[in-house]
Amino acid sequence: MELIQLAVPVLLKGLWMTLTLTALSVAIGFNLGLGLAIMRGSDKAWVSGFARYYSIAFRGTPLLVQIFLIYYGLGQIRFIHDVPTLWWVISEGSRCAVLALALNTAAYTSEILRGGLVSVPAGLTEAAKACGMSRAMRFRRIEFPLAIRQALPAYGNELVLMVKGTSLASTITVLEITGYAKRLMSQTYAIFEVFAIAGVLYLALNLVLISVVRLVERRLMRHTRPVSQGRAAIAISAI
């Protein structure tokens, strides 16, 4: 009981950090990933090639290596020392973690979104073209809305992986749930109890996230649901 009183407030403090890391890196990573997914479809070989090799490099190496490379490695480059904004990002653990997580999830997101974009029927794009829509409008109104519906379930999994990925920030001095949990484990020796509390926090967080994704999915796919009796009656009476 004492242990719970000691551990829960500490781990909840960590939960806030985990949430911040996840939210920031997902917000940045999604946009980068969207950019990379569009680049993959480009006609210019070097543009699509860059996106392809980026994705191979970040998906083929462990996230821990990427975090260490950014946190310990980049500081060695003169140029980064000299540019204040870059140095600001690199000089602190949590900002490095956000950068590494964002770059990492961008690679996975680009693959997921590309899968969605490829699945958009060519006829729809052609029809939009025939209607005289510009390229940007076609993407905004036709391709992206269809692609995101296709990609959403896989993106939900990626979000869970991101929440789990934030735990690696604890290796570069950031105190989030896992960081505090490790500290509590070595202070109290109550290994399993601390693990259980931290684990429940992660599971709850992931459960909420998955439910939100499901809700968004249901909202986006509401046109495929059968019309309920009441609504059908209203529709008929309106005619």
Partner: peptide, 13 residues
Amino acid sequence: VIRGVPELLIIYL
């Protein structure tokens, strides 16, 4: 449990 909890935490446990 394994798929919802970070790998690092499981290794620590």
